[in-house]
Computed example of a mutant assay.
Amino acid sequence: MRVYADLHVHIGFSNGRYIKVPSSKTLTLENIIKTAKDEKGLNVISIVDFLCKDVIDETDKLLDKGKLELKDGSLYSEGLLIIPAAEIELRFCSNDFHCLIFFEDYEKLKDFRKIIKTYFNQIDFSCPVFRGQISDFERIVSSFGLLAVPAHAFTPYKGFYSAAQRVEEVFKKIEVFSIELGLSADSKMVSYLCDVQKRSLLSNSDAHSLKNIAREFNEVEIEYVSAKDVIKSIKENRIVANYGVNPKLGKYHKSYCKECNSSFNLKSQDLILCPFCKSNDIVIGVEDRISWLYKTENPVEKPPYFYTFPFELVQGFGQKTIQKIIDVFENEINFIKSLNNGTFKNYNIDENIAQKLVRFMNQDYTVKFGAGGHFGRIIFE
């Protein structure tokens, strides 16, 4: 069977306390679950703040109340699978990067936290810092049988490739089965990179708000709806398709000068200067970063990457229009699937909206590129 999964979602507020600052008090476990099921249409969600004691305590309370179910180690809410995970900060050669770890069993997560909490700074907040060496991290991951995935790997801030050039430079004792693309990149952009040839690619939202859940998501072939089977499918490269925002719209797609606010492509990694004002205060864009990494002449074909519809970045799509679309399609994933296969034309949609959707499907629009932490925009001219 195939499921739709967003495997990187943050909790902002749990058990009466902020987990991630800044964030909204509405970004709670229960609201995330409701939004993922009812508004987004996901089958699987992974919440990456499960090392926090408050998140564990809140989960236990929901289990006691019967709002969550624990079966064979996996957490469920009325058919939605919730995979416990953590986003942690590691250091390699004085450079920090983020890595996701996924747990097959909720009770083993609790055991893991008890044993390793001395390795972390601020373990009860989002994205705790690992204080040991990479070799310590690898030993722990291996002993607990965890899946480790470099998070938002190509982005300039805490992305894996802002710290290293190759996976094997960093991880020497564990196998890295998958890489998370992050905003501003898709599978086509990275298809020639040596690191991705034998690894699955994940497109996850890294959502810090309810509206951004499933902004990126994955279509995964699995045998059973369980944490163990989803993780097994990632390891076996059984991602059927990736879905995400057009990378040109991503807020780090182009390189950016913080001095004169210009965006551009760098000509060389040896001379990182703004071509307009000659400043060296540059945020290196994902497009440039990818162009500098090790490549192969014979890339392996990756699953298709379909563009989601970033409502807030499209000219002429306000909240009323968005609600009209969701009312017709019931949830966002139904809408995205219909948009990509063209069947949305069979639905009763306002003619003006339908025309813009046709143009979006045909990529008949102008893109204002994203850069320097600012999202791009789709403009119909």
Rank of each mutant, 00 (worst) to 15 (best):
D111T: 12
N362A: 10
E219F: 06
F380W: 05
A214P: 05
N237K: 15
A153Q: 03
K345I: 02
R17L: 04
K211Y: 14
L249F: 04
A185N: 02
P275C: 10
F335D: 02
V314I: 14
K67E: 15
E169Q: 12
F103A: 03
P275D: 00
N265M: 07
K302N: 09
N334W: 14
T26R: 04
S24V: 06
G159H: 11
D270N: 08
V176R: 01
P303V: 10
F360Q: 00
S191C: 10
S77G: 06
V328E: 05
F171H: 08
L7C: 01
V225K: 15
Y256A: 11
I239Y: 13
I134S: 07
E138G: 11
N218W: 07
L68H: 07
S77K: 07
D111V: 13
Y161D: 01
Q315M: 13
Q319C: 06
N348W: 03
V367S: 04
I349R: 15
D60I: 03
R113S: 10
D327T: 14
S191N: 12
Y243C: 04
I19P: 06
E301I: 14
N31T: 13
R91P: 00
I47Y: 03
I82P: 01
L29F: 14
A227S: 14
E332G: 03
L70H: 15
I231R: 05
K108H: 03
S203E: 15
Y106N: 02
S226Q: 05
C257K: 04
F92I: 07
